[in-house]
């Protein structure tokens, strides 16, 4: 069993909750090396996503992701708006018209999302941006996928799907890696975005966008686990 439209919606609901809970933390991180709006921008954006989703009838995960993308683009503003917007847009394109997403499709969507952010923002690993959370997350997701595939190939003798209960594992791996990646931004000197104006003074602070990316992936992973009937680990 894969990840259906209502699972994606539930996951975004969870993202909205988590972002709202962490709004002030993100604001504070952004005050330190930016302009203090990241938490409010993200909160405003996902709140808008929620009302858009409530008003719409959507029948594929791709449609949900696409509405999320356009809503973020038109309500977030700042650097994060177009970057997260592009991420969701690319993820939507990656999953196409599928009505249920396999773990493999989820991992592919993550890769597409991350590549979209890089294409738009031109940041590399180590520039102290959300890319420092997203890129390790993609790699971890793909490794988890490969592990799961190898495992199921070994045990079940070549099932074609990695299995619906692969989605929680893939997203959990992504979230774990994103958190580590976000933490890794602390000592870095920023080279992209507003924090780069601070030069050396940007070192010693967690990047707000990397933190929000890690929160977002953790919310998705929690939602996936819950959908699969899992409990807290």
């Amino acid at each position: 069993m894969g990840c259906a439209t209502e699972d994606v919606i539930a996951a975004l609901r969870r993202v909205n909750e988590v972002i709202a809970e962490h709004r002030d933390e993100l604001v504070d991180l952004d005050r330190e090396i930016g302009d203090g709006d990241h938490g409010e921008n993200m909160r405003r954006g996902f709140e808008a996503v929620m009302s858009k989703l409530d008003m719409s009838e959507l029948d594929t995960p791709g449609a949900v992701l696409k509405l999320t993308a356009t809503t973020l683009i038109s309500t977030v503003g700042g650097a994060a708006g177009p970057l997260y917007g592009t991420a969701f847009l690319r993820a939507a394109n990656a999953v196409g018209a599928a009505t249920e997403l396999s773990a493999g499709e989820v991992a592919a969507a993550l890769r597409a999302a991350c590549e979209g952010v890089v294409a738009r923002g031109k940041a590399e690993i180590g520039d102290k941006t959300m890319v420092d959370a997203l890129q390790p997350a993609v790699r971890a997701a793909e490794t988890a996928m490969a592990d799961a595939a190898a495992l199921s190939a070994a045990s079940a003798g070549g099932s074609t799907s990695a299995g619906g209960d692969g989605v929680p594992a893939v997203l959990a791996a992504a979230a774990d890696a994103a958190e580590v990646g976000a933490e890794s931004t602390v000592p870095l000197v920023a080279r992209k975005g507003r924090a780069s104006y601070l030069g050396e003074r940007s070192a010693g602070h967690l990047d707000p966008g990397a933190r929000s990316a890690a929160l977002l992936l953790r919310a998705l992973a929690d939602a996936a686990r819950k959908a699969a009937g899992g409990e807290a680990p």
Partner: peptide
């Protein structure tokens, strides 16, 4: 005009 200190959106 965007939100305070936040660039406007494309729309």
């Amino acid at each position: 005009p965007g939100a305070v200190f936040t660039s406007p959106t494309p729309d």
